[in-house]
Amino acid sequence: MDLNLVLQLATSGFLLGGVYSLIALGLSLIFGVMKVINFAHGAMLVWGMYIAFTLMNWTGIDPFFSFVASAGGLFVLGYFIQRTVVNRIMTFHEAMQVIAMVGVMMILENMAQLIWGPDPHSPHTRYSLSTIWLGSVMIDIPRLFAFLLAILMAAAVFVFLKYTDIGKSIRASADNRIGALIVGTNVNRVYAVCFGVGAACVGAAGSLLVPLMPISPHTGFPFKLTSFAIVILGGMGSLPGAMIGGLIIGVAESVGSVFIPSSLKQIISFGIMILILLLRPQGLFGGKGS
């Protein structure tokens, strides 16, 4: 086995894993607080991509700057979706919740198709093909930027949750819903902000992916499934778990393509997901079992 190839794949997987982490962070935050699986997560990613793509076409702003706009746009969208749909279904049967969120997914994904058309776009940036060498390992500049900005965005979310009042309320509601209610937290507002922040994470991630891959209305689906695997690996609702899980899955999928065709790489994520579900359902970083 070629060690250099493995190192190369591990590096590129690690860098993409940073973006996976950001996507999974949003999913885990939403699940941790509201106990709802956001099946529309992939569609939200696509919206983040298209917002960045449109800004790039209209004003020439680079996706690596406009990720802030994607995050803002998705925050508003997430806030709205929570208020209109998610807030009403939180006490429903889980199968009902799945169908409602799938409905939201269908609306978002196909709205994107109506607005931007079904054909894939691959926007070109100045640095599209530029690379730097680190010893014998080649590093893709767009991937490196995407990784650094994803980590930056995740750090911003952690600071928000740790130091702002509303962030503290979100963590309190995640820990103990009833307790938060008793001390007078406006739980509805907290939930809506939380869903907005989760959507902002995935929106920013979408923007960061624009220079890396062609975008089309249905690119979000595999990312959603991968982020399910990451969230299980890290522990449902565990935010550090989502970050580290993203990096692990990124590396595992990338290095796995040494052994199996890359079109099968998702089998690795699902295999990991099944093992973790069976042996350690609380995830690597979750507390006691649920």
Partner: peptide
């Protein structure tokens, strides 16, 4: 697997999704 290991609610949902996707990817190849 699911019942022996006591998976409930969304955890069982995700287990079935994972097996479904593995089946699809395998069939594709």
């Amino acid at each position: 697997l699911g019942f022996r290991f006591g998976l409930k609610g969304v955890y069982f949902v995700l287990l079935t999704i994972a097996f479904g996707e593995i089946g699809r990817l395998t069939a594709l190849h």
